[in-house]
Amino acid sequence: SEIVVAMYDFQATEAHDLRLERGQEYIILEKNDLHWWRARDKYGSEGYIPSNYVTGKK
């Protein structure tokens, strides 16, 4: 599975969105859409994140 790191904070506005915290790692579950990826955080929460807010883990 692909691990990404959040470059920016993202506040979830929709129920299906996942909040991003800058510097935290997330697991990508689905990339069915170019701009919104389904991800899981370290607490096990899942939701959609803006793909341009994250970068591949170095």
Results as ranks from 00 to 15, higher is better:
5 V>H: 04
42 K>N: 05
7 M>V: 10
24 Q>T: 04
40 R>G: 02
9 D>W: 05
8 Y>A: 09
1 S>L: 15
9 D>S: 09
42 K>F: 07
7 M>K: 10
22 R>I: 11
16 H>A: 10
54 V>K: 01
25 E>P: 07
44 G>F: 04
46 E>F: 04
18 L>H: 01
57 K>E: 09
51 S>R: 08
27 I>Q: 10
9 D>H: 06
22 R>G: 05
28 I>S: 01
3 I>D: 02
10 F>M: 05
15 A>L: 12
16 H>E: 12
14 E>R: 15
57 K>F: 11
12 A>G: 15
43 Y>C: 09
13 T>Q: 12
35 H>M: 12
38 R>T: 06
58 K>I: 14
34 L>P: 15
19 R>A: 13
32 N>H: 12
51 S>W: 06
24 Q>N: 08
27 I>N: 04
2 E>F: 14
15 A>K: 12
55 T>G: 06
42 K>I: 09
6 A>I: 03
52 N>L: 09
37 W>L: 03
28 I>Q: 00
14 E>P: 04
52 N>H: 13
25 E>L: 11
18 L>D: 00
18 L>V: 03
51 S>N: 06
37 W>F: 05
45 S>R: 15
27 I>R: 07
27 I>M: 11
18 L>F: 06
16 H>G: 15
44 G>H: 03
28 I>T: 00
29 L>K: 03
4 V>M: 09
22 R>L: 08
39 A>L: 04
23 G>R: 03
13 T>E: 10
40 R>C: 06
49 I>W: 02
43 Y>W: 12
17 D>C: 15
50 P>S: 04
4 V>A: 06
12 A>I: 07
29 L>C: 05
49 I>M: 03
20 L>A: 00
51 S>K: 08
28 I>W: 02
40 R>Y: 03
33 D>N: 13
3 I>H: 07
35 H>Q: 11
32 N>C: 15
46 E>R: 02
56 G>K: 13
57 K>C: 12
43 Y>L: 08
15 A>D: 12
37 W>N: 00
25 E>F: 12
52 N>I: 10
36 W>R: 11
44 G>V: 01
45 S>F: 12
41 D>M: 02
10 F>C: 08
24 Q>I: 05
58 K>W: 13
21 E>M: 08
42 K>H: 07
57 K>D: 10
26 Y>P: 00
33 D>M: 09
53 Y>N: 04
29 L>T: 05
48 Y>I: 08
22 R>F: 08
16 H>M: 10
55 T>F: 08
11 Q>P: 14
4 V>P: 00
53 Y>W: 07
20 L>M: 10
3 I>P: 04
43 Y>F: 11
7 M>R: 09
4 V>C: 10
14 E>M: 12
11 Q>W: 13
54 V>W: 01
49 I>Q: 01
14 E>D: 14
6 A>D: 01
1 S>R: 14
16 H>T: 14
19 R>W: 07
17 D>A: 14
52 N>V: 09
58 K>F: 14
41 D>K: 02
48 Y>W: 13
46 E>L: 04
32 N>W: 09
36 W>I: 07
49 I>G: 02
15 A>G: 10
51 S>V: 09
41 D>G: 02
18 L>A: 00
41 D>N: 07
18 L>M: 06
45 S>D: 13
1 S>I: 15
24 Q>R: 07
50 P>N: 07
48 Y>C: 14
41 D>E: 02
12 A>N: 08
40 R>P: 00
20 L>K: 00
3 I>V: 13
51 S>Y: 07
51 S>P: 07
20 L>W: 02
58 K>A: 13
57 K>H: 10
47 G>P: 00
23 G>H: 06
47 G>D: 00
30 E>L: 07
40 R>W: 03
33 D>S: 12
46 E>W: 04
24 Q>F: 09
35 H>I: 13
48 Y>M: 14
21 E>S: 08
9 D>M: 05
55 T>H: 09
8 Y>T: 06
33 D>A: 08
37 W>P: 00
26 Y>T: 01
41 D>A: 02
47 G>I: 03
45 S>H: 15
4 V>Y: 11
26 Y>S: 00
7 M>G: 02
